[in-house]
Amino acid sequence: PKDQAKKEIEKALRNGDEEKAKRLAKKYGISDDDWKELKKRVS
């Protein structure tokens, strides 16, 4: 599910692991808009 994916990506971003977050986003098909939203929430 997308919500689970977003949680994992957000966690990776919080850990400062943007490479992992990007890989997860690609793997789960997270859209650019969702990606920006996640980045905003974390920063």
Rank of each mutant, 00 (worst) to 15 (best):
W35D: 00
E37S: 05
L24P: 00
D3H: 11
A21Q: 00
L13I: 04
Y28W: 08
N15F: 07
K26G: 05
A12E: 05
K27G: 03
K22V: 10
K36L: 14
K39Y: 08
R14T: 04
A25H: 02
G29W: 03
N15Q: 13
R41S: 10
Y28L: 05
K27I: 12
L38S: 02
P1S: 13
E18V: 10
D32V: 07
K22P: 00
D34F: 04
K39R: 09
E18C: 11
R14Q: 05
K27E: 10
K36Y: 13
D17W: 11
K6N: 07
V42P: 03
I30F: 09
A5R: 08
Y28V: 03
K22F: 09
K40L: 10
K39W: 06
N15G: 10
S31D: 06
Q4D: 12
G16T: 02
K2L: 15
I30L: 14
E18Y: 12
K6E: 10
L24H: 01
K40G: 07
A5C: 07
W35E: 01
S43G: 12
E10A: 07
V42S: 05
R14M: 08
K20T: 13
G16S: 03
G16L: 04
D17A: 04
S31Q: 04
E18T: 08
L13D: 00
D3T: 10
E8L: 12
K40F: 11
K6Y: 15
E10F: 12
A21R: 00
L24S: 01
K22H: 08
K39F: 06
N15E: 15
E37L: 07
P1T: 12
V42R: 03
I9Q: 00
K6G: 05
K40R: 15
K2I: 14
K27P: 01
G16E: 03
E19S: 08
G16H: 07
K26A: 10
L13T: 01
K22G: 04
I30H: 01
E37K: 08
K7N: 12
E8N: 05
K26E: 08
D33A: 12
Q4C: 15
K39C: 06
P1L: 14
K40T: 10
E8T: 04
A21C: 01
D17C: 08
A25L: 03
D17Y: 11
A25V: 06
A21T: 01
A12G: 01
A12W: 10
D34V: 07
E37R: 07
P1H: 12
D17L: 08
W35G: 00
E8P: 01
K27L: 14
Y28H: 06
S43A: 14
D32S: 07
A21L: 02
S43W: 14
R14D: 02
D33P: 04
E8F: 06
K2M: 15
I9C: 04
G29N: 11
R41F: 08
V42Y: 09
K20N: 08
K22Q: 09
E18Q: 06
E37P: 01
N15A: 14
K6V: 15
E19V: 11
K39T: 06
Q4M: 11
G16W: 03
I30N: 00
D17R: 05
G29A: 09
K7S: 10
P1M: 12
K6T: 12
K39A: 06
I9W: 01
R14A: 05
A21E: 00
E10Q: 05
E19Y: 09
R14G: 03
K22N: 04
G16F: 04
P1V: 13
K11C: 08
S31E: 04
K6C: 14
K27C: 14
A25D: 00
R41Q: 12
L24W: 03
E10Y: 15
L38M: 10
A12K: 02
D33I: 06
R41G: 09
D32Y: 12
K40H: 15
K11S: 11
A5F: 12
D34K: 03
L24R: 01
G29E: 07
E10S: 05
K7I: 13
N15C: 13
D3P: 06
E18G: 04
E8C: 12
E18P: 05
D3V: 09
K39N: 05
Q4E: 12
S31G: 06
S43E: 15
K39V: 15
P1C: 15
K7T: 09
A12P: 00
I9E: 00
L13P: 00
Y28R: 02
D32Q: 08
D3Q: 10
E18I: 12
D17E: 10
R14F: 05
R23G: 07
D32F: 12
K6A: 09
Y28P: 00
K27T: 06
E8W: 11
D3K: 08
K7M: 13
S31C: 04
K36M: 13
K11P: 00
K27D: 06
S43F: 15
S43L: 15
D17V: 02
K6Q: 09
L38P: 01
K36H: 12
A12M: 10
S31K: 03
S43I: 11
D34H: 03
K7V: 11
R23H: 09
K22E: 07
I30Y: 06
E18L: 11
R23C: 14
K40C: 15
K27H: 09
I30C: 04
S31H: 04
E18K: 05
D33Y: 05
R41N: 12
R41C: 05
K36D: 14
V42A: 10
K36G: 05
K22A: 09
D34C: 11
E37Y: 06
K27V: 08
R41H: 09
L24Y: 03
K26P: 00
D3G: 09
E37W: 06
L38N: 01
K36I: 13
K27F: 14
K39S: 04
R14K: 07
K27Q: 11
K7R: 12
K27R: 11
R41M: 14
Q4W: 15
D34P: 01
K22W: 14
E10L: 15
Y28N: 04
I30W: 07
K2E: 11
L24A: 02
A12T: 03
K40E: 15
R23W: 12
L38A: 02
N15K: 09
G29R: 07
